Simulated assay, not measured.
Amino acid sequence: PTTKGFDFWHCNSAGVYSGIVANGNGDCSDTTNINTTFLRGLINTNDEGVAQFTTIFPSHYTSRATHIHVLATMNATILPNNTLSGGSISHVGQLFSDQSLISEVELNEPYASNTQELTTNVDDTIMSGEAASMDPVFEYVLLGDEVSEGVLAWISIGIDASASYDVSPAASWTENGGVSDSNSGGIGGGMGGGAGHSAAFPSGAAPSGASPSLFGTLMP
C-alpha cells in the first residue's frame, strides 16, 4: 500500500532525542542512545487529511525553544515492518506551543529537573522563520484542572503535494541497530519547507526532484 503520512519526533523531558549521539544531546558518552527510538512516530492521514497521535509534552534544550518536528511524505510504500520506502517529502517543519503552556509544564517534574538553558519562543530564530509564513503554534485545551492531567493540541498545516525536498538524516536504523550520519549537521533540524514557506531548509536539506527513501531513517 501507499501512503500520505507524517513523521513526528521530539526530545524528551530532559531535552534529549532518541537515536542520536552528539554533543548537546544529553550524555554524549552514552553510545547506547544510538539504538533508541523513543518519541518518534509515523502516522498516516485519513481520507480527510487528518493524523493524530499520543505523546508526552516535549521539553527544551540549549538554544532551542520547545518544539515538535514534522515531515510529510507523499506516495511512499509501507513495508512489512511498518517503515516507509520511496515517495517524496513534501513538507519539513517544526511546530510550537504557547509560551504560557510551556511555562506551566516546566514547573512540573520531570521537566523542572531539566538543567539545560531555557530558550523562549520569542528568542527562537527557527520559530521566527516558521512564523513568517504560517502560524506554527498549536491550539490546545487542558484535559483537566491541571496541566499534569494532559493536553489536547491541534494544528492545521497547508502542504504543497507537488513539492519535493531532500533531507539528510542524523542516523539510519539497520538490522544491526542505529548508525550515525556524520554529515547530518547537528542534533536538531532547521526551518521547514512546504506550502507557504520561504524559509531556509534544514541542515543538509534542499529542494530536489529526486524521491528520497525514508526507510529506517532517524531525523534529528
Results as ranks from 00 to 15, higher is better:
P1S: 15
E130I: 13
N183Q: 10
D123T: 08
G26M: 03
A163Q: 06
Y111P: 03
Y165I: 11
P1V: 13
E130P: 15
S213K: 05
G194R: 00
M74D: 08
I20N: 09
D98R: 06
V50L: 09
A51R: 02
I159C: 08
G190K: 04
L79P: 11
S208W: 08
N33W: 02
P169R: 09
G129Q: 14
V167H: 05
F57G: 05
A206M: 10
A205Q: 01
A170I: 01
A72L: 14
M74I: 15
S184G: 00
S180W: 00
T119E: 02
C28D: 14
F215Q: 09
K4W: 10
G192L: 04
C11T: 02
D123G: 08
T115R: 03
H197F: 12
G129L: 10
M134R: 15
S85V: 05
G209R: 02
E106P: 01
G188C: 00
S198W: 06
G86V: 01
G86W: 08
S100K: 14
A200S: 14
S103C: 04
N33Q: 09
I68F: 07
F215Y: 05
G49R: 06
E48V: 07
V16M: 06
I102F: 12
I78R: 10
W173G: 03
N46P: 03
F215I: 10
N121D: 04
V122C: 01
M134Q: 12
A161D: 02
Y165H: 09
G192E: 02
G194V: 08
V179N: 00
A76S: 09
G41N: 07
T45F: 08
S172L: 15
G178L: 02
F201L: 04
E48Q: 11
T2L: 15
G19C: 07
I187R: 10
M74R: 13
H67V: 05
C28M: 15
F96E: 01
A200W: 09
E117R: 03
P80E: 09
D30A: 07
D30R: 07
T55N: 11
T62K: 10
I159D: 03
A200M: 04
S128W: 06
L218Q: 11
E175A: 12
G216M: 00
G190P: 03
S100R: 11
Q52F: 05
L143F: 03
I187C: 00
S180Q: 05
S100W: 05
G144C: 02
L84M: 11
G150M: 07
G158I: 14
D166S: 14
A51S: 08
H10D: 06
N82M: 15
S90L: 05
D98T: 08
L95G: 01
M191W: 04
G129E: 15
G41Y: 01
S172C: 13
H197K: 15
T31H: 09
P80M: 12
L143V: 13
S213N: 12
H91I: 13
H69W: 12
A199C: 10
A76F: 03
G216E: 02
T32Y: 01
A131W: 07
A163N: 07
A161N: 12
I68T: 10
A161E: 11
L42C: 07
T125L: 12
T77F: 09
S29R: 06
E149M: 14
M219L: 10
G186K: 07
G5N: 07
D7K: 03
A170Q: 02
I126Y: 06
G87D: 04
S162M: 13
G188H: 06
S13C: 14
S63A: 15
S97M: 10
I68S: 11
